[in-house]
């Protein structure tokens, strides 16, 4: 079995100050992140935030205009064979050759990977109920995603890169695919780097999360720490304030009249003192969901920015 071989401490993916421009649009703006071995790293962002562009840089399909990308300590553009042979990739495009049959596709892909596990591939094929004689163009969207995942997993890659793995799939197929990914990660401790705009998916499987908006990383950290640091405060005022209350560390405020709710990221004591100084009383404090954090962090930027991004290719 092909076991992970990254040296301890060395990040599997190291991105530093990466920027990329498509004509006048800035697709990536000084992005920096590290993915450690064994981590499940979730990349969250709205459509056009730059997730696919970032993933294409990781795979060496796009050249860094400035900054640098290292995967297993190597440049994926300069040394694609060394990098790609250790990576399993599932594309959002589902661009498998439509004229091939499933068994031909498996045989073809197998030729490129010395560590191909034929028994595991067969097990996955049976589990995903893929007919070996069926042509790819006759598969449904979900079956095509499963075929792509089979190809990405069967050589037991050290790094699994998934670009919107469940985009456009029904809940049953999504669950099936996520379970396959989770089993891979849990059983073998491999690294997974995946993008999604489905936050429940990210919340279910990720250790670390980065949120992207307009080509920038707006928040990055361990998922539990992010959830711990964000909370909702409900304030009650004796008389309706003239303007929405401004609390230090409040990312987003909603409400009206006497009662206002703020999604906050800050020191709880300071926030309570600030609320008291405004004449408000805190009536409720609840944990924030990743969904709410994302909307608070990214929603505002997305609405105000005119720098929405085109598809990378």
């Amino acid at each position: 079995m092909n076991m992970p071989t990254s040296s301890p401490g060395q990040p599997v993916i190291a991105i530093n100050g990466l920027s990329r421009r498509f004509k006048s649009k800035l697709a990536l703006d000084a992005v920096s992140l590290n993915v450690q071995s064994g981590q499940v790293f979730g990349l969250v962002g709205a459509n056009g935030a730059g997730k696919t562009t970032l993933i294409k840089h990781v795979l060496g399909l796009l050249k860094a205009e400035s900054g640098c990308v290292r995967v297993f300590g190597r440049d994926p553009v300069a040394d694609p064979v060394a990098v790609l042979s250790r990576v399993g990739f599932l594309s959002e495009d589902r661009d498998l050759p439509s004229w091939m049959r499933v068994d031909e596709l498996i045989r073809y892909t197998r030729a490129f990977h010395a560590g191909w596990d034929a028994a595991y591939a067969e097990r996955l094929r049976e589990q995903f109920q893929l007919d070996p004689g069926e042509r790819i163009k006759h598969l449904s969207r979900g079956e095509m995603a499963k075929a792509g995942l089979l190809l990405a997993l069967a050589h037991r890659p050290e790094l699994l890169v998934l670009d919107e793995p469940s985009s456009g799939l029904d809940p049953l197929v999504r669950r099936e695919m996520l379970e396959a990914i989770v089993r891979t990660v849990a059983g073998e401790g491999r690294t997974v780097f995946f993008s999604s705009h489905l936050l429940d998916e990210i919340e279910r499987v990720s250790d670390r999360v980065a949120m992207m908006a307009c080509g920038r990383i707006v928040l990055q950290g361990r998922l539990d720490e992010i959830l711990e640091a964000h909370f909702r405060l409900t304030l009650r005022f004796p008389t309706p304030p003239a303007a929405p209350p401004k609390l230090p560390g409040a990312l987003h405020t909603t409400g009206g009249g006497l009662e206002w709710t703020a999604l906050c990221n800050g020191e709880r004591g300071e926030l309570k003192a600030a609320a008291a100084s405004l004449g408000a009383r805190i009536v409720d404090e609840t944990p924030a969901s990743l969904d709410e954090i994302f909307l608070a962090r990214v929603g505002g930027q997305r609405l105000t920015s005119d720098n929405l991004l085109p598809a990378a290719r």
């Binding site: 294409k56 795979l59 399909l61 694609p80 064979v81 990098v83 790609l84 042979s85 990576v87 990739f89 594309s91 495009d93 661009d95 498998l96 050759p97 490129f112 990977h113 290719r313």
Partner: peptide, 12 residues
């Protein structure tokens, strides 16, 4: 243009 499927083949 190469599709992603072809471009990520681990060959030179």
């Amino acid at each position: 243009p190469l599709t992603t499927f072809q471009a990520v083949r681990p060959v030179a």
